[in-house]
Amino acid sequence: MSVARLLVPPRAKRGELVEIRIAIQHPMETGFRMDNMGKVIPKNTVSNLVCRYNGTEVFRAEMGSGIAANPYLQFYIVARESGAVEFSWIDDRGEKGSASAVITVTA
């Protein structure tokens, strides 16, 4: 079970700049660590994360072993219309995750 936390302001004025924050529980395995038996733990990072706002891609992050464990991203979008801010991501092992929130935009 993977956990994510997403922070999107529930309400915004049209044209307002809103801050989006997301945190995902993931070890971001570097591929350089070994287990207790001396066997290399394969690299496994959240390699691709996409944020769509009302269906349109607004942000994409391609991340490697240089991103800290439990990746955290904070960026902005302009509130245009009410709708969904949806995140989806995939790691090197093919495991997928998603999170979404609704933003209500007023004039």
Binding site: E62, G66, L73, V78, R80
Partner: peptide, 23 residues
Amino acid sequence: RPIIAKISLSPEAGRAALTTRIR
């Protein structure tokens, strides 16, 4: 690995800013 991250932005971002945590 020298590339820590590659971030694609669109004009919809409104402000070109990113906060994250690196190793």
